[in-house]
């Protein structure tokens, strides 16, 4: 039957089209990773890790200041953001049936979709402006605000997955309610919560926009969190848009290091913490 043949042909063609789409989606990833390695590896050597940037246009120099700065600012963000996000998530899971919880949940999703540049403006308004100068601390606050909604939602999901029979058993044994929540529900969900936290850390480690006018960047090695500080992402931005060949070379090296850092957090999230519940899909 010719109609039958045509229908089969259409089905074949469309199946092939979806295969093509999958291939086309993976190609940019391979290209980007390939270029990162090809162009980045040559700049990564010992000097690259231990030196701070050379004077503009001069050869040599490294990103030691940016690596340390990234770790400090991301650390500040995690220090401020994780307790809040985890706490709010536990609240939503344990008491999350009232109207206030509905609002918190909705706000978490709204904040999750807020452009990171707007979060940068927020940190500038409430940190940089009152303090009168740019600082790593303000950058950390911006990153914390980016983390909180992500961590809140994953924590809620993880605590909710804890079987009721476990918490009920604890209550039946005479545990007080807060000890049941903290000692049974949260503790059982902990690996999952940590996975969510590490994913959030991986995401903020690569952020640039919220740091542009908070941490600002710094060409020197600085550890004072009340002063401007460099991060890998800021350094890549400055070097990539700058005029010098040497800078472009360093930008690729810094990008490779940043990508590796993000992937390490991501892989840690996936493998190191053994989640006790499968994700149900």
């Amino acid at each position: 039957m010719p109609g039958q043949f045509r229908r089969r042909l259409v089905s074949r063609i469309m199946t092939a089209a979806t295969v093509l789409a999958a291939v086309l989606a993976v190609v940019p990833l391979l290209l980007i990773f390939g270029d990162l390695v090809a162009k980045g590896v040559s700049s990564v050597n010992w000097d690259f890790f231990v030196n701070s940037p050379a004077a503009p246009g001069e050869p040599g120099g490294g990103v030691a200041n940016a690596i340390v700065g990234t770790l400090i600012i991301v650390g500040l963000g995690a220090l401020a953001g994780l307790p809040v996000g985890i706490g709010a998530g536990i609240y939503l899971a344990e008491y999350g049936t009232n109207r206030f919880s509905w609002i918190v949940r909705f706000v978490a999703d709204v904040l999750n979709g807020t452009p990171s540049i707007v979060v940068g403006i927020f940190a500038w308004t409430w940190m940089v402006k009152p303090m009168g100068h740019f600082s790593a601390l303000a950058g950390g606050v911006a990153l914390a605000l980016l983390m909180i909604p992500m961590v809140t939602r994953t924590t809620e999901e993880m605590v909710r997955l804890v079987p009721h029979s476990l918490t009920e058993a604890a209550l039946a044994l005479g545990y007080s309610r807060w000890r049941t929540s903290l000692g049974i529900a949260v503790r059982t969900a902990w690996p999952g919560i940590m996975t969510g936290a590490l994913v959030a850390v991986a995401r903020i480690a690569g952020e640039t926009a919220p740091l542009l006018f908070t941490a600002l960047g710094n060409l020197n090695f600085r550890l004072d969190i009340l002063q401007p500080m460099q991060t890998l992402s800021l350094q890549i931005y400055v070097y990539a848009t700058g005029p010098f060949e040497e800078w472009h070379r360093l930008a690729w090296g810094a990008a490779l290091v940043l990508m590796a850092l993000v992937l390490v957090f991501g892989l840690a999230a996936r493998y190191a913490t053994r989640a006790r519940f499968s994700h149900g899909r």
């Binding site: 980007i32 690569g206 640039t208 931005y237 990508m259």
Partner: peptide, 24 residues
């Protein structure tokens, strides 16, 4: 594997996309 590879695109920092865009 395909799902993970595609989702990995979301892990690349924006500034790295920018760098790749400018030079490649």
């Amino acid at each position: 594997p395909v799902a993970s590879l595609v989702e990995l695109l979301a892990a690349i920092p924006s500034v790295v996309y920018g760098l790749w865009g400018v030079f490649v």
